[in-house]
Design a protein around this nucleic acid. Structure first.
Lengths: 139, 139
DNA sequence: ATGCGAGGTTCCAGTAAGGGGAAGGTCAAG
DNA sequence: CTTGACCTTCCCCTTACTGGAACCTCGCAT
């Protein structure tokens, strides 16, 4: 198979596949014309990579997972450890994003969004407390 | 103020502040010894940037927001538009992450995580249907 | 044989948003 | 006068690719 075929079948782009070869994730053969020649095993690896990447694993994780996948004597605990670490990172990101979302949607809700310049969003970003009810009146 | 002070007060690192100057977000003065000299207005801008960045706005968005902030004739709708666009991106990311999390936690739940090599996670990544109940028995 | 378009190849540069670290100038204190 | 904490510029590194230029190759139609 040439790179175009493998790209279609693995759901990766040719560019990505070349990159994966560059960083040593796959090692296709070469034809006399220098074209890459992919075996079924290469396709299999690339499909694996596409799935793992789609699930958010880093390239480093993917490398480790591929190694474990190829190792018949692996312990499933090693795989699970990588996965659980990744799950925790996902959870942390979700929490972060939800916090941002809460703050921003709160500010946006209070913003008229019309032609006037007054804007609670900008006030929030600039650190003005737009509801200074519990502060001593210092003005 | 020197860069160290501003860093502490703005919650940004000195490196970041130099970078922001590089890309034209702030333009501190210079002392005779080449040290950057930050005015209150610079500190204010940097604090604004720190907050906006912490809320996930891109540098480009920050630049636009700063411009709007400085523009007394702005329309709050412009600010709100940027914010709503960002909110939608946040929502999309959360949805993506939740989907990954669902798939991965499902796989992880089925993985024994012990010394044995059998691993539903790897099977899932490799495209094996680890629950081939509705497939013809081809073995 | 020739031309063409659709493949393939390498290499270089750029992305976002800084981080790390080297090599060196400056300042205040003891 | 030296020490340590600042500050400066400069350049490369990061992640995971993406885009483009310049060029080669293949199969097919003329």
């Amino acid at each position: 198979m040439n790179i175009g075929d493998v790209a279609k079948r693995s759901n990766l782009r040719a560019k990505t596949i070349r990159y994966y070869e560059d960083i040593g994730l796959v090692t296709p053969l070469r034809d006399t014309n220098d074209y890459r020649v992919f075996r079924d095993s290469d396709l299999h690896k690339l499909t694996f990579l596409a799935r793992a990447r789609a699930l958010g694993f880093t390239i480093d994780d993917c490398r480790a997972l591929l190694t474990l996948y190829a190792d018949e004597t692996r312990a499933s605990s090693d795989v699970k450890e990588i996965t659980n670490k990744h799950l925790k990172e996902i959870e942390a990101k979700i929490v972060d994003l939800q916090a941002m979302h809460a703050t921003l949607s709160h500010l946006a809700k209070e913003c008229a969004g019309d032609h006037r310049p007054d804007c609670p969003i900008l006030q929030g970003l600039s650190g003005e407390d737009r509801n200074p009810s519990n502060e001593t009146d210092t003005k």
